[in-house]
Design a binder for these strands. Structure first.
Length: 581
DNA sequence: CTGCCGTGTCATTAG
DNA sequence: AACTAATGACACGGC
């Protein structure tokens, strides 16, 4: 796709498919043993490959190949690297796709660590491993806090010492950090011997689950891994900026099985039809497993299965919205897939089915051009996901339709398959009106394409508008809450002030009355003078309250008292009763 | 199972 | 008239 700069005389053509196509062709060459210049031996199995590819993907191979004493046509891998662990890594090196299941994920992870495989973010393991090996009652933990590691390791070591010698317990020394893996968190993994052994997925799962009974309980909420992954920036911060991709990836998920693990040569992966059309070779071990996977949340569905065949990958112009629709499927589809598989997929052309379902997890640590879960799309227009306002917070968005939306999803899928746009999808959203119109004028679009583009633009704009609107609402609510708090505080201050003033008033009243009584008692005032004195007092603190005789005295003289003091006229003036000082 | 919350989408309205 | 932004209403999934 051309990334031309608008309003500029300088144009740059940047193919987003070139790198993947080159890799694809290298993989084809590997399959045909063309130009392969190295043989990798692992557990007696040989793999032909290209040195440059291996060295580009693995620090181990880089060192081996570049080392003058180690260079050669045959590289024997350490014993710790197993066949089941290396084979998917080799495929990943040539396809950017890592296929793994319960039975081999830990071996892959271990092998990747030992070989220093690049571009494999541990977050993908951290995210899925708990789901693979978490027992149904949630008490079969794999993840432990760091504080538990030593004890668990010690216990496992004891267990291992009494078991098969080839059971490998990898400790910190043995597990080398993956080159590009993220920094370790307070969550780590122990490699249980039962899963590093070659066992069926269910066996390994159950075995681990059983052993896990004695192990610490998994920490954190159900989706803690995913949350951590997000915090870690595995999606948005990994130079990818596919803001809304996070909200979209949850919509894609499917089962696949490695139908043809032909040793030495390339694997041909077949994938369960996402739209529920079970026409591909697939082999799932058990209904229970299908159901287990089907019950996975949307977050888990982030592990998307996409068609692996590049030949079919005519530039699929797509956007997140339609992508979401594409990958809509239901548990029924899972079940149907399984039933179809069970009925007609005992063996495939290669005569071998891999035990257990496999999740295909696109590289999360890839760069922008390696948009996780959307690789096929970022070959075209993945920058669309950079649309402003589509934030990672949309993780929980519910767009993962269930069985009821299957038909619609199929329709959208077919639409997306048909529609191909000659320009970047992000332009659809980000261009202003004039530029967008200009773009449409410059391109000859079919009616379908035009409607597609306008629909994308409308919904994307509306999505952003809704987000702004909600943000405003929240801001408004927040401001109102602040205002309420401010008024409450002001009210409390005023109440305190009133109380303080009232207290001060009472004190003043008492002082005034004391002075009045003193004047009255000591000066022997004439009634006229008393009247003047009474008029100086207030109704709140009348002079008569302490000098009750004053009103009677004043009334006897026919004086018009201050109205505030006229209530006690019957009282007689008795200066001698004054107790004032 | 229910309620709440976040999000996307649609329909409507106003500019 | 076409477009955009704002917003209420609704649906949906996660928790």
């Amino acid at each position: 796709m051309a990334g031309l700069a608008p309003r500029s005389s300088v144009f740059t053509f940047e193919s987003t498919v070139h790198s993947s196509q080159v890799l694809h062709r290298l993989n084809e060459q590997r399959c045909r043993d063309m130009l392969c210049d190295v043989t990798v031996l692992v557990e007696g199995q040989s793999f032909r490959a290209h040195r440059s590819v291996l060295a580009s993907c693995s620090e181990y191979f880089l060192q081996k190949i570049s080392s003058p004493t180690q260079h050669g046509a045959v590289i024997t891998l350490p014993e710790e690297v197993t066949l089941a662990g290396f084979e998917p890594l080799l495929q990943f090196a040539y396809t950017s796709k890592l296929n793994f299941g319960k039975d081999n994920v830990l071996e892959i992870r271990s092998s990747a660590s030992i070989l220093g495989f690049r571009d494999l973010d541990e977050a993908c393991f951290d995210f899925l491993l708990p789901k693979f090996f978490l027992s149904r009652n949630g008490s079969a933990p794999i993840v432990r806090k760091t504080c538990c590691r030593k004890e668990c390791k010690r216990r496992l070591s004891k267990e291992n010492s009494a078991t098969d010698s080839d059971d490998v317990l990898l400790d910190d020394k043995e597990v080398k950090p993956v080159a590009d893996s993220s920094p370790k968190r307070d969550v780590t993994w122990d490699y249980n011997k039962s899963v590093s052994n070659k066992m069926g997925s269910q066996n390994s799962t159950r075995s681990l689950g059983a052993e896990g009974k004695n192990e610490p309980v998994i920490q954190g909420p159900k989706y803690r891994k995913f949350q951590l992954a997000c915090e870690k920036g595995m999606f948005a911060s990994e130079k990818c900026s596919f803001n809304s991709a996070v909200s979209e990836i949850r919509n894609g998920f499917a089962l696949s099985c490695l139908s043809c693990p032909n040793k030495v040569h390339c694997e041909k992966q077949t994938t369960v039809d996402l739209t529920g059309n079970p026409n591909s070779n697939k082999c799932i071990e058990s209904k229970a497993e299908v159901q287990e996977v089907a019950q996975m949340s949307n977050m888990e569905r982030a592990a998307i299965i996409r068609e692996n065949s590049r030949e079919r990958s005519t530039v699929k112009k797509e956007t997140a919205d339609h992508l979401r629709e594409q990958f809509r499927f239901s548990k029924d589809a899972y079940q149907q897939n399984f039933l179809d598989c069970e009925a007609g997929c005992s063996t495939d052309a290669c005569g071998e089915c891999v035990q257990g379902s496999s999740l295909q997890w696109s590289n999360l640590a890839s760069t922008k051009t390696g948009c996780p879960f959307y690789q096929d799309f970022d070959q075209m227009n993945c920058p669309m996901f950079e649309s402003e306002g589509t934030t990672q917070s949309s993780v929980n968005s519910g767009e993962d339709g269930d069985s009821e939306t299957e038909t619609e999803g199929d329709s959208e899928f077919s639409t997306a398959e048909r529609v191909q746009l000659p320009f970047s999808v992000d332009w659809i959203v980000n261009l202003n009106r004039n530029d967008f119109q200009q773009l449409l004028k410059q391109q000859v679009l079919t009616q379908e394409q035009l409607e597609f583009v306008q629909d994308i633009r409308r919904r994307s704009k509306n999505r952003l508008a809704a987000q702004r609107c909600r943000k405003r609402k929240l801001d408004c609510i927040y401001n109102l809450q602040c205002e309420i708090n401010k008024l409450k505080t002001e009210r409390e201050k005023l109440i305190l002030e009133r109380s303080r003033l009232s207290q001060r008033k009472m004190e003043t009243c008492h002082t005034v009355n004391a002075l009045c009584r003193r004047v009255y008692s000591e000066a022997n005032l004439h009634p006229d003078q008393l009247q003047v004195l009474a008029s100086c007092t207030s109704s709140d603190c009348p002079l008569s309250s302490l000098v009750p005789q004053i009103d009677a005295l004043l009334s006897q003289h026919g004086s018009s008292l201050h109205p505030k003091t006229a209530a006690s006229q019957e009282d007689t003036l008795n200066p001698h009763t004054d107790t004032s000082t």
